[in-house]
Simulated assay, not measured.
Amino acid sequence: MNRNPKHILRRLSHLTALLAALALLAPGCRTATATSSQGVQTTQQPIASTDQIPEGTDLRLSLNQKLDTQDTREGDSFSATLLNPLVTPAGEVVVPAQATVTGRVTGVAPSTSANEQAAIRLDVQQINFDGQSYPMSADITQTGVEAHADGDEMRTGAAVGGVTGIALGAIIGRSVGSAVVGGILGAGAGTAISLGTGTTNAELPAGSTMTIRTTKAVPIH
């Protein structure tokens, strides 16, 4: 056996490199990887079977239209595009990327003063792909709003929210007391989302990302 110290160190170095490579490959065996419309790589956990989207499944979406306090009305429809396919551990595609999730606006509350909170409430109702539509119940758990210019002001989630308000895009329907949400929007189904504070038109731009989580299993026939 070769006990030369340099030889032993070389062997250990090769073994370390091999283990590192295997560690990088392992997650790829468990998740499907996709690139969002913003060019950010995201991962989607696999689902167990091809006949349903289980309760508690997260879906990452891109909003297809602007939603704001000036033109959006309660009862309007909205849609968003699925960024990541839903797949089984074996790699079977259950729901393809570019599937469409649709729903209704169930509340809009504009801000009438500099410190007043604006908000919108969205109710997820269906997912549509391969020519079929399936009823869906889901909460919105996260939004991502890209910075965009508005006059001389660069508006971001942190900037628009202000000191006294809740940041643009923050989920307020599930994380604060019902009195706060009820005071802004009144009663209704869906998830309330902050549109920041101030008297100007507040909006979620088209292309904003959001994550929804199913609250019931969605059978796929």
Rank of each mutant, 00 (worst) to 15 (best):
M136N: 05
T112M: 14
A90N: 10
V181I: 06
L67K: 03
T191C: 11
N201F: 05
T31S: 11
V218T: 09
A217K: 02
K66M: 11
G177E: 08
S175N: 12
S37I: 14
A119T: 04
L195D: 03
L12K: 13
Q41F: 13
I140L: 02
G157C: 09
D130E: 15
I166W: 02
G183M: 01
R11Y: 03
S111H: 03
E92F: 05
Q142K: 10
R121G: 05
T43P: 12
Q98N: 11
T81F: 08
H14M: 13
L61R: 06
R11K: 13
I212G: 04
V218R: 09
R73G: 08
R213S: 05
R30E: 12
S133H: 11
Q98W: 12
L24G: 14
I140F: 03
D139P: 01
D123T: 10
F129W: 02
S175K: 08
G198L: 01
S178I: 08
L168S: 02
L168E: 01
T209E: 15
G198Q: 03
N128I: 13
T35I: 13
I193K: 03
V124F: 02
K6L: 08
M154L: 10
E55K: 13
D123V: 06
M1C: 10
Q52D: 11
G151F: 04
G182H: 07
T50Q: 07
P96L: 03
L83H: 08
Q70E: 15
A202T: 04
T31Y: 15
E92D: 10
A147M: 14
S77L: 07
L86K: 06
A179E: 14
G28D: 13
N128L: 14
T143H: 00
P27L: 15
P5D: 04
S175M: 14
G103L: 12
G144I: 14
V94K: 03
L185R: 00
A20F: 10
L24N: 12
Q98V: 09
A149R: 10
H148Y: 10
R121D: 04
K216W: 02
